[in-house]
């Protein structure tokens, strides 16, 4: 057998290639399936609230004007271009989440933890907390038209909070001792104790009822989406393992 060390650039080993294709295949299936269902849930439950808010953002409806405004205006229906793009981008976003999640699942499995659809539900809840709930606790899911701080500052805070929450979730799941739980708690609390970037003043023209409903719907659909993503990811990870074992 030729010693591997003689190669200046070592070729990718078959095991590495198998592992990568297993991660990629599981993540693509899980992301596409969960993303598609999520997109439909968002169109059904979140989009009407967003469209309602946009009537106030554009000034078509005015809150606290001379007359009381009906809470049930006629909303635009399905827009093939706009909503089609939303479906594509939701599937894309959830495929991105799935790639991260399945990669971490592969490491957890290597550490001896079983990964399947049932365990995937917990993975999904942890993912929801990491990517949606932790940043959303201080940067609440916003309807169009609300006052907000500079986008760059919010993106930096969002990214740092997601990173901290992700590490915290891993420590809670796999740390297994008091110190890691305490570090996890500190990582979860710190971004909110420091505080998210806030607007100078409130200028949003959208009624508070719509803003509250939007945040609730975004979180609700987000939790459903992530539980589905985790379960699908765990399921496909198992299935792809059987394929990989059969080939080996």
């Amino acid at each position: 057998m030729t010693p591997l060390t003689t190669c200046a650039t070592r070729p990718v080993s078959p095991a590495t290639r198998t592992m990568f294709s297993r991660i990629l295949t599981s993540a693509l299936f899980a992301g596409a399936a969960a993303g598609l269902i999520t997109a439909l849930l968002q169109l059904l439950f979140v989009q009407p609230v967003l469209l309602h808010a946009e009537l106030y953002e554009s000034g078509e409806l005015v809150h606290f004007g001379a007359e009381a405004v009906s809470a049930h205006p006629e909303l635009p229906g399905f827009d093939a271009m706009r909503d089609g793009l939303s479906i594509v981008f939701t599937m894309l976003t959830y495929t991105g989440y799935a790639l991260v999640m399945v990669a971490l699942m592969s490491l957890a499995e290597r550490m001896g933890h079983e990964v399947n659809a049932r365990a995937g539900i917990l993975w999904g809840i942890a993912g929801f907390i990491t990517f949606h709930f932790a940043p959303g606790l201080s940067l609440a899911p916003e309807v169009p038209g609300v006052a907000a701080a500079d986008i760059g500052a919010r993106q930096i805070w969002w990214t740092a909070t997601v990173a901290a929450a992700g590490v915290a979730m891993w420590l809670i799941a796999f740390g297994g001792n008091m110190v890691s739980y305490l570090i996890a708690a500190a990582l979860l609390i710190a971004p909110h104790a420091i505080g998210a970037p806030e607007p100078e003043s409130f200028t949003g023209p959208v009624p508070t009822e719509i803003g509250a409903l939007f945040a609730a719907r975004a979180f609700g659909v987000g939790l459903a989406a992530w539980v589905l993503l985790g379960a699908f990811a765990g399921y496909f990870w198992q299935t792809e393992r059987k394929h990989a074992d059969a080939k080996a």
Binding site: L50, S86, P135, E142, P144, I151, Q155, A218, V221, G222
Partner: peptide, 11 residues
């Protein structure tokens, strides 16, 4: 719309 619904900072 996805960014708003998925909780990313938008605008």
């Amino acid at each position: 719309d996805v960014r708003h619904a998925t909780g990313f900072p938008c605008h």
